[in-house]
């Protein structure tokens, strides 16, 4: 890679040198190479052309979408008459589904507020910095917390009739159980992969699954009066 004959100092030269790190070894540090510097490419054109192709594919997709399907347009706004059901845009339907169960101050303000706050503070709480498996350290205490929080969450969800959120929670619990039962020296595979996942992974995955379930339910399975309907029985 760093063939010296490629190097010359003139302005017209095609310099192919990759940056070289120089480590200063002091008394308190010791040199140890963890991994080598990587292979770099020019941003222009290598990265940009790929990005451009990706965007082109997307735009072609959107253009065909726009050619084939018209954007929805309903009747002129009529304050005297609420359509049934009055649905928000799809990305808010998870929230609207929550509003079906909880008072607005909880589902409309508290939950989204907490989620946003949580997202903002994630990097500052050193969560996932080590990226160690959830039960790899402090196992006993963490197990105790885990197996008390999940049932409490389930009871809470059922108390508010949020049955739609239960399966995903149970699935996470089941996977956690698998992760817990996986020995540290398990062979590489799904189980060891699960066991290596940190707490933040589990919370985020639960959140993602609930988001998808609630949005999916709100989008496809809710009809007049926010009652259950089957989308294929239109």
């Amino acid at each position: 890679m760093s063939d010296p004959k490629d190097f010359s100092a003139s302005m017209e030269s095609d310099f192919r040198k990759t940056p070289v790190r120089v480590a200063f070894v002091t008394r308190r540090t010791s040199p140890a190479v963890k991994f080598r510097d990587e292979d770099y490419v020019m941003t222009f054109p290598e990265t940009l052309i790929r990005a451009a192709v990706a965007v082109q594919v997307l735009v072609v997709f959107l253009v065909w979408l726009a050619l084939l399907w018209n954007a929805p347009l309903e009747q002129l706004a009529d304050p005297m008459h609420t359509p049934n059901p009055a649905k928000a845009p799809w990305y808010f339907l998870g929230l609207q589904e929550l509003l079906h169960y909880f008072p607005p101050v909880v589902a409309g303000v508290l939950v989204p507020g907490l989620v946003v706050t949580a997202l903002v503070v994630i990097p500052y709480f050193n969560i996932n910095i080590e990226a160690d498996g959830i039960f790899s350290k402090d196992r006993r205490r963490r197990l105790a917390i885990c197996w008390s929080v999940i049932p409490a969450l389930l009871v809470f969800l059922i108390a508010f009739d949020v049955y739609v959120a239960v399966p995903a929670t149970l699935l996470i619990a089941a996977l956690l159980f698998v992760a817990q039962r996986t020995p540290a020296d398990a062979p590489k595979g799904f189980r060891s992969w699960l066991a290596s996942k940190p707490l933040s992974f589990w919370i985020m995955t639960w959140f993602l699954m609930e988001l998808m379930v609630l949005t999916g339910v709100g989008t496809f399975f809710r009809g007049p009066g926010w009652s259950w309907v089957l989308p294929w029985r239109g």
Binding site: P72, L76, D78, A86, K87
Partner: peptide, 8 residues
């Protein structure tokens, strides 16, 4: 300013 917009 259609029904969809107004009620959402």
């Amino acid at each position: 300013w259609d029904q969809l917009a107004y009620w959402a």
